[in-house]
């Protein structure tokens, strides 16, 4: 039990060190740099050209499918990990192998549908 928590304590300490390095660098920067803002300096930098309009624009709905495809494959991968650790273990036979491929086949149907409807091509 202590081994489990001390291993994650290492992770937490590493995370804290990372945060300290980044925030420390930013903080030291803020303390050392001169701070004389002018309205021109505070403008959004847009390739050297004066920014036009607002920074907010509605994105197109077709991006949603790509995001959702990412979600589907993340869920997919999440089930592949436990499957990969056990499918060759004693007590799990060909059936376990087939079950995962049935799962993948259903999701592949979705990809096939997306491909047939030309969602994946960028026109």
């Amino acid at each position: 039990m202590n081994g489990y928590f001390s291993s994650y304590l290492t992770v937490a300490v590493l995370l804290a060190i990372g945060l300290a390095v980044v925030s420390g660098a930013l903080l030291v920067n803020r303390l050392l740099r001169p701070h004389r803002p002018t309205p021109e300096k505070l403008l959004t930098y847009e390739c050297g050209v004066d920014p036009v309009g607002e920074g907010w624009a509605q994105s197109q709905v077709r991006y949603y499918v790509f995001t959702y495809l990412y979600v589907v494959f993340a869920v997919d991968a999440v089930f592949l990990f436990p499957w990969a650790t056990i499918f060759a273990a004693p007590g799990f036979g060909v059936a376990t192998l087939v079950e995962m491929f049935v799962f993948l086949a259903f999701i592949a149907l979705g990809i096939l549908y997306a491909w047939r409807k030309r969602v994946l091509t960028w026109t």
């Binding site: 089930f79 799962f103 997306a114």
Partner: peptide
């Protein structure tokens, strides 16, 4: 829990097709 696992793939498929249909321009 194999059956819920397989049912999940159908759910993902349905949601994927729904997202595609909704976002087709």
């Amino acid at each position: 829990w194999v059956l819920p696992f397989e049912a999940l793939s159908v759910l993902l498929l349905a949601a994927l097709i729904g997202a595609i249909v909704l976002s087709r321009t």
